[in-house]
Design a protein around this nucleic acid. Structure first.
Lengths: 248, 248
DNA sequence: AAGTGGTCTAGACCACATA
DNA sequence: ATGTGGTCTAGACCACTTG
């Protein structure tokens, strides 16, 4: 007996792919569509398997892969949940912050203004050149010592609420503000590391000498659907930066 | 019917762990022990499952995990193989080498001598300070342009054969030479990235100005058993370095 | 006690590589 | 043609969490 037609839930997936791959694609789509908040569990294995008209074994395989990919979290007895982005692997983590443990760094907003997007910002944000963007210039501090200069660009009018709230409310963490003010959740990001030399202005802010090597980190942050929501350029003292990788 | 005792093959593994974890541990041990060269396949699923006295399904789960971890490679119809370290993810890859595709960079040995290990080298190689080590000083070239300075330290007497062969034979790739001359296979490595400024000597070799920012990469390479086999420090022009990560 | 995911089994059938 | 891994199923039993 061959399987003449599969579950309607899989209508939009590529029929040439094996079942487990099609189910995985569909679940990723549903997670991106925000079908489950991070506090509501996915349906149990049995229900999902029935809905997709596949066996529990096959579904389990898919869920295990999604958990391995960091998209889901599974807890025996509690359920399966969508994993919130933690950005544990951001390159920022590798600036050595002397003497502290797990506290969040402080931050001071130096400037907030509306700009016409410069070419490279427009390209990163995927908007037209010279279109209106919100620009934040921010200094991050560790125990009152500045260690990172950030320039952040956000597309308008989408981020207009961020342009209007008081600077005090733009506390150290921006992503929770995006979520609270405009219901936008950052799902992933790409970071690129390169090395530059401090300009006069940067030297003053970072308390170093003009020309000192800086590590520059460009981050493009996206929503679950893949739309670019934020672009930022950060500069920190290269002397306090260490990055380690395992290779196999 | 309960399973009174498991396969003798699992005698050395932790009995509190689930079966699949114990089998995985044992297979990792056997891979490290070099039981299968990279050209001889592992026994087929059916044989392995029988040897461990577990079902094929459970064994398949273990093999899939090992493949996901990059330890094994599986090919439908051909078999399961131990994966050779390719070092595709080495940080070296991120020096932008203008205009070339997949060719290997050239290399020129500037010096080869025997030293008493300086403190930081001894620490990295896990040998006593001042013990004898072989030191290689090498320049790596891309289309006849130098882009990387390497200093490599190898413990003696283990690497004595490398001290004796002609410099011509120390071609661009060292790891195949280690394998051929002393039967030593590099299985993994740790790399650490930091930023320095060019000394006068480095500036001459890299054709830059003294004080220019350099990217420094320290690599500690290990055998399958985890013993440190090589330590190297490499310096390249920061201006030609770009490194990109995805974060979730 | 009920419901969740975790472990393990047994076997059918398919797709690919090699000789 | 044979043997390899890949897909998928069906179901038993266990461990953990919560009310």
């Amino acid at each position: 007996m061959t399987q003449a037609s599969s579950s309607p839930a899989l209508a939009q997936t590529d029929q040439r792919l094996p079942l487990h791959a099609r189910v995985k694609d569909d679940l990723i789509r549903r997670v991106r569509a925000n079908e489950w908040g991070s506090t509501t569990p996915l349906p149990p294995e049995s229900a999902l398997a029935e809905a997709y008209a596949i066996s529990v074994g096959t579904l389990r395989r898919v869920l295990a892969e999604l958990a391995a990919d960091g998209i889901l979290e599974r807890h025996q007895g509690r359920g399966t949940y969508v994993r919130r982005a933690t950005f544990q692997h951001s390159l920022f983590r590798f600036f050595r912050m002397q003497g502290g443990t797990g506290q969040t760094p402080g931050s001071r907003i130096l400037e907030r203004n509306t700009q016409n997007a410069p070419a490279h910002v427009a390209a990163a944000l995927n908007v037209k050149e010279h279109s209106a963007v919100l620009h934040l210039h921010r200094l991050r501090l560790w125990q009152d010592t500045p260690f990172l200069i950030e320039n952040i660009w956000l597309p308008l009018p989408q981020f207009q609420p961020i342009a209007e709230i008081s600077l005090d409310e733009l506390g150290s963490l921006l992503y929770p503000e995006y979520e609270k003010r405009i219901g936008l959740i950052i799902g992933s990001a790409t970071e690129e590391l390169s090395v530059t030399q401090a300009t006069d202005g940067q030297a003053v802010l970072l308390n170093c000498i003009s020309g000192d090597p800086l590590v520059k980190i460009n981050r493009t942050a996206r929503t679950h659907t893949g739309d670019v929501a934020e672009y930022r350029e950060s500069h920190g003292l290269a002397s306090s930066f260490r990055y380690q990788v395992e290779i196999n």
